[in-house]
Structure formats: structure tokens, C-alpha cells
Design a protein around this nucleic acid. Sequence first.
DNA 1: TGTATACTCTCCCCCAATAGGAGAGTCAAG
DNA 2: CTTGACTCTCCTATTGGGGGAGAGTATACA
Lengths: 295, 295
Amino acid sequence: MDIFQQTFRIGEFARFARVTIKMLRYYDRLGLLRPVAVDPETNYRYYSAEQLPRLNRIIALKDLGFSLDQVAEILEEGFTNEELKGMLKFKRQEIVKQIATEQERLNLLEAHLKQLDGKAEPLRYDVVVRPVAEQLIASVRRVISDHSNEVGSLFDTVETFVAKFNARAKLPPLAIAHHRAEDRVDAEVMVPVDRAITPEPPIQIYRLPAVDQMACVVHHGSYCDLKRAYEAFFEWAAASEVQTAGHTRVVYLRFGATEVGYHLPASFVTDNSEKYVTELQFPIKKVPKNDHSLT
Amino acid sequence: MDIFQQTFRIGEFARFARVTIKMLRYYDRLGLLRPVAVDPETNYRYYSAEQLPRLNRIIALKDLGFSLDQVAEILEEGFTNEELKGMLKFKRQEIVKQIATEQERLNLLEAHLKQLDGKAEPLRYDVVVRPVAEQLIASVRRVISDHSNEVGSLFDTVETFVAKFNARAKLPPLAIAHHRAEDRVDAEVMVPVDRAITPEPPIQIYRLPAVDQMACVVHHGSYCDLKRAYEAFFEWAAASEVQTAGHTRVVYLRFGATEVGYHLPASFVTDNSEKYVTELQFPIKKVPKNDHSLT
DNA sequence: TGTATACTCTCCCCCAATAGGAGAGTCAAG
DNA sequence: CTTGACTCTCCTATTGGGGGAGAGTATACA
């Protein structure tokens, strides 16, 4: 035994390197840092001081945010400096993105706090931001009286048309108010379809575009109270410093005496309104402003 | 069956809510969101549109960074608004801290990139920042000639003294250069002890303070090359925008013909220097500057 | 009425990077 | 020889689900 091959047992080595024993065993198992010797009888691991630089490199890379798999790869493959720089730059992108999400989360939280401020009772509405996929729809658009039940008959028209082709997709019907003025509203009602069927005026078939950032609020109860949901959204939007970026979609998840996705009955106006479930969807974008958080 | 109790199967409900089926089943298992009905024969889960607000609340809270356990707690316990605000503020602290760590990681990465820049061969040294615990040590301090081997005999003195009390802690010996001028250096050599023994001049016993942010560089090889490790650290420090904040500690992990933690032999100067392992420890602090990333 | 297809169920394993602990064996000192 | 500190392997748990197997179910269509 060369005296220079003198070695440490795992606990001592861990103390010197300021890592835990568990980590050393784990790195051994991964093949990241093998002990210089293992007693075949006792399975005791023996480490040498010369392994400290390698361990330090492992920890340095780990601290930079690389996974242990990636660390292993970097240590094994003899990457050139240029390749390494490429990886670091990629990692940097990831971290920047990560910080952005955290910042976003922080904004959400601040908005929530602001909304809570000065209110005694808990919030009734939760605004959730999610991407919404593109969907193929059949629609009809008309200027109607705001307080009539003409919307119901419009839905009836489209649903009947779609039913003829048996092309109803299992998604809820929705509506958009393109323009609103003095009790008149330019409304478009839409019914999802599962394939492109031939349109027949006034019914159109097209793809309702996907929205990446859609703020959604679910309202439960009569339509009379729907404005509360709108108010809740606008309050949230002000606190979150976002703007609407497109038409609001009103999604009818449950209405009248029927579930969404099925044919509308004539009894649309019977007042079972306390059971209605409606989702408001607002496409949003951030209010442009100077952001000091990232370079 | 009341027609208003009409329900969705899990797939349809998942589509409407834009969550995965797996998530719904998982939330069911956690008791976060139970289906309104489960067929006792088939175990099919049936959901109602009225559950969407609750699901949305779950998702909103999750998006704020709460764990599902916490979400469950918030939903079950009827927290007052004040309590909820407290929790949100606590969460905010956590996120701010999280962002700070990510920012720190980013700085590290930038430093690494800068260091890599313009160099062809891979880096020889890795700087690792870690906390170092307080340790009780026996030390002796003297102004000695820089190139003499007086350090060796100083260690010898202290180790011998400590050995008398059998108080040697299993940690490596270290040294600090308090002042250096023209081939003369005011050096203090230290040997860790595991209990307070009575000092005997010139030997002192005291607690070497803990350092929260210690930049560590391990050097492997002859002491002649140790300056390269210093250079590597200072380069890193410049790129990381940190300053040293205290005396540099030189930790002798392997030296001469002996491992650390044991008695120093007289053969200290025999040239087996290519096997030496030395760690330089630099207490650091961040360079104060305006930080726009956090309010 | 049979069948094809889409849907759902439970159960089990997987992810990353460890931490904690059980139960057994080992080392060093007194 | 004993005692206490150390080490070993193996198992479990963490978070928030994803993937898939194998079996059963609902529904539409012929």
C-alpha cells in the first residue's frame, strides 16, 4: 500500500467536501463519482482527496442548474469550450424563462392580494389563465335585441343544422358579442363541430382561433348575476395589469334544462336559472411597461 | 333522476375544464374534488358543471404556488379573508426568495460564461459557494519567512500539543495569512479540536467563526501552482461581482506524506508535491449595487 | 343482435434528487 | 470483550401527475 493511496471513509470525505453521505452514495450509484476503492468484503467505500476537484465540478455544475444526468454527460464527454458555452447559454435561457414564470406567479399573487384587500367576504370568482385550443365551429351572426331570447333561437338554428350532418363535437356552445349599443347587440353564436361540413347561409363554418392566454371565469347561477363575473374579471385585470385582447367568449356549460353539447330544447326560458353554469373567456395580453426584472 | 343532476363522464368534464383525466382522478383520490356520483358497479365517475367553480379555485390556488395539500386545507377550512391574506403574503415571500435564488444561479452562470470566454482549454478550477460551519481550533500565529518551511514546524507544534490532550477533531488543518510583506508573512496555523482544551501560549484555543458564503477552490498538485487557483478565484470573483470579506483560509486536505487529520511527519518537504490537495476558502459578499430585479 | 370503437376503470411503474430509517455488519478504543 | 461510532444495503417517502397494461363498459352502426 502506497502511503499516497491513503483514503477516507465516506463520512470523513463527506465532512471535508461538505456534502452528505447520502449524496456520495447516490453519486456512486449513478457512476458520477466512484470511490477509489471499495472493500470487497465489507463494501466500505474509500475516497481519496484527489477526488475533491471532480466532486467540486459536479457541485458547481449542479449549482448552475444542470441535472445530474447532464453533469454526468458533461464530465464524460470531452466537450470543447464552445460546446460547453452553448450548453451554458441554453441553460441561461431556461433560467430566464424560469424567472419569468416565477415573476408571473408573483404578479398573480399580488393581483389576488389587491383583490382581497378591503373585502370582508371571500372571493366568489377565481380567474384562471390557460391556453385554449383552436376549434372548428358552425356559427350564425345577427344583430338582435339585448333582452330578447333571440339567442336561444339562434342556437336552435345552428344546432339543428349541425344535427343534420351529425357533426356535433362534444364541446359546449359559445357566443361572442361583436358590438353592443343601446339594447342592440351584434351577436355570434357558435356550436363546435367535429369535421368541416358545407356551410349554408347564414351559417358559417370556420376555425375559431386558439388563444394562448385566456382568462377564464366560471359563473354559477342566473344570467342576471353574470355582470358580477364580468366585474370580478375586470377587477382582476386591473390588479394584474393585463388588457383584453379580443372578443369575450361566453361559453354555455349548462343552461336551460339541458347539458351543453346536446340539442337545445324549446324550454330555454323556463327559469331554472339558478342551475346555469357559464364561463366567460377573455383573451388577454400584458400591459406593456418597462420591466426591470430581466435584462 | 332530476334532469338537473345530469352529469358528465370524466373525459367530457376534463375537456370542458381543460384539465387532464389523470388530474381529475388524482384530485378525486386526494379528496380535493370528488365526482358528484360514482357508479357503484362500474366505478365510473360522474361530474357536474357545478363543480367547475371549485375546480377553478383549485387551479387558481395551484397557480399561485400552493401545494395541493395546502389547497385542500384552504378549501376545507373556512379561512377568513385576513387569514387568507396572511397565507398569500407568506407565499409571496417564498416566491421572492425563489426568484432571488434563480437570479443568483443566473449570476453564477454568467460568471462561468465570462470565465470561459476567450479560453481554448477547459477550466481547471471550479469555484463552489457553500456555507462553512464554525469550528473550534487550536492555533499559533507568527511572522515567518515566506519561503521557509516554518509553516511545517508550526503545524508540528500545534499538532503535538493537541495530541497530548487527544483532542484532535477529524477535520483538516488550515492556515490564514493575516498580512504579507516582502517575503515575510504573518501566518496563523490552525488545527481543529473536538473540545475546549486549556490553551498554553503561544497556542490559542478559540472558535473559528462560521461563514455563510464561502467560495471554495480545490487545488491539486504542487504549492508552486497554487497561485493558479488564486487567479482562478479572482477571475471568478470579478465575473461574479463579489468581493472577498475576510481572510482567505488555506485548508490542507493532503500534504507531505500524510493525510490530513493526523500528525505531521518531519518529511514535510520531501517532494511528493504532485499529490498535494489544498483547498482555498474565500469568504465573500456581493458587491453592493442597485438591483432592479426585486422591489 | 352482434360488433367495432371509443371510453373508463384499477393497478403498477416512472420521473429527480435526495432524506429518513431499519436491521445488520464493521472498526477502533478502552 | 464491550461499547459506541460508523457503514452497509434495502425500503419507503417526497410532488404532481404521465404512460401503459389489461379488463370492463357505453354507444353507434350494420
